[in-house]
Design a protein around this nucleic acid. Structure first.
Lengths: 208, 208
DNA sequence: ACCTGAACACCGTTCAAGT
DNA sequence: ACCTGAACACCGTTCAAGT
């Protein structure tokens, strides 16, 4: 006699993902996995299973695994941009706002390791200038350039080529973020201290 | 009649790897693969095959895939340290030597992408303070600290905490390297230009 | 000591088929 | 339109066996 066949280890939600919800749920689940277990532990089968969905359902929403990762990176860049702009606006669009922007960058990297490692791990190949990832990344970078130009116009920082200045400053905050992510800045307090120190030294230089 | 057996493409060399040579050959082949095809394309089976050796031979020399990657990272850090010390020594252990050190760092990252991505890709888990990778990484970092202390003693740079100074400067060169590796500094000329700019701005600050 | 071959559990991806 | 199940080629790792 056939038991009603909803046995299933966990009880799968019937068809919750029928209106574009699934794409977003998969993205979220992928980020969560990378954040907790590292990028090597991300499997499409695992994502599907944890979402109570066939392991091939993903292909309805992304081209392949690479496509899923590209979506993670693009979302990450959009989130980063929002965090930067918010800090800059909230703190007066001057020296203080600019320092807050730097702190916000590092805070984003530490808080969203899952996104960050995909954004800068060489996972998404450099290629295409106009793919979603490159555009989102360019927008985030542009937020930094804009803040620099605005400060230059108000005479707050040197009037060098804004692009070169932006690259230089981006290197600093990105470098600090990587130090933190690789465990070389063990406590959050040490990361914050380095950000403060960097802001000071960035302004005045190391020459004696 | 047997041609002298330096033919190559196919023909597997009988038992060339019987005295510790194999471990090094595998390391080299792994680096070459990562450099050319990215870290995701590295498979133990492929390494074995290209070396004309069983796909499980690797387990005689490394604990597992992770162990192979750890060896790559450790070797990378040792090479990086050597490159830094060499630049510093060769250019007079002063301001010029220090700038050469920065340039050497970025040059290493760009020339040895395979090593560099493993060293800083979150591939080797942060853990153990006294594992081979951490020790080698610490030694490389120490070379930077030493150069800073020496300059401080000669009054060339500010006398802040050398550790904090080293972290800050490391962030700059590492950040520039990542920009280059991710294709945001398309030409080598642009990378070099940014290094020169960073050196100048590092010394004198961005405040106006 | 060093290497092999078969085996196991797992993976990304394709494709015909179901609703 | 969206999802499933079976199938394929591939992967890391183990282990008994060979020299």
């Amino acid at each position: 006699m056939p038991r009603p066949r909803l046995s299933r280890p966990a009880r799968k939600p019937p068809s919750r993902y029928h209106h574009g919800d699934l794409a977003h749920a998969m993205l979220q689940e992928a980020v969560r996995t990378i954040q907790k277990q590292g990028i090597a532990a991300l499997t499409l089968r695992g994502v599907g299973e944890r979402l109570g969905v066939s392991r091939t359902a993903l292909y309805r929403h992304f081209a392949d695994k690479q496509g899923l990762l590209a979506a993670v990176a693009a979302e990450g860049f959009r989130m980063l941009r929002a965090a930067l702009v918010e800090a800059w606006d909230a703190r007066g669009r001057g020296r203080e706002g600019f320092e807050a922007m730097g702190a916000a960058y590092v805070r984003f990297a530490v808080a969203h390791t899952g996104h960050y490692r995909v954004m800068f791990g060489g996972v998404v190949p450099p290629g295409n200038e106009d793919c979603e990832v490159s555009v989102a990344g360019g927008d985030a970078f542009q937020a930094l350039v804009d803040a620099i130009v605005e400060q230059q116009q108000r005479g707050l920082i040197v009037s060098d080529d804004p692009l070169q200045l932006a690259r230089y400053i981006w290197s600093v905050v990105h470098g600090i973020s990587m130090l933190a992510l690789d465990g070389l800045l063990p406590t959050p307090a040490e990361a914050e201290a380095l950000v403060r120190y960097a802001n000071e030294r960035l302004r005045t230089g190391i020459a004696q």
